[in-house]
């Protein structure tokens, strides 16, 4: 563990994967709801979205991020992507060292 509180690139990649799944699965759910409304899609993507939402929050709290960035992940639907954007701009702004 380094003393500098900067999330690693691989850590942010995990946050990215969870965030994209969080938003994409919700898009699939809403599109399904508005169009064919197939119950199989709902019962498959529902748990996927729920897991991705919780995983995004958990990953954000395990990474060395600021409290504000962590709390952003609580925002439904796009919280993970907002937090990811904030983490990346903060890291770049603070002169973060590329891996």
């Amino acid at each position: 563990m380094t003393a500098v509180a900067t999330p690693t690139t691989s850590g942010l990649r995990w946050l990215g994967v969870a965030s994209v799944v969080e938003t994409a699965s919700l898009v699939v759910l809403v599109v399904n709801l508005a169009t064919v409304h197939h119950p199989l899609v709902t019962s498959t993507m529902g748990p996927v979205h729920g897991f991705a939402y919780l995983a995004t929050i958990a990953v954000a709290f395990l990474l060395p991020l600021t409290t504000g960035t962590r709390l952003l992940t609580l925002v439904p639907a796009v919280g993970g992507l907002l937090a990811l954007h904030r983490a990346r701009t903060r890291t770049a702004g603070a002169g973060g060292t590329p891996a």
Binding site: G50, F51, A58
Partner: peptide, 21 residues
Amino acid sequence: SRVYAVLGLSVPVLGIALAAH
């Protein structure tokens, strides 16, 4: 501990989906 704790979140999520079903 860390990685599998995050993956383990799928257990209650699947459980809630199953209970609702």
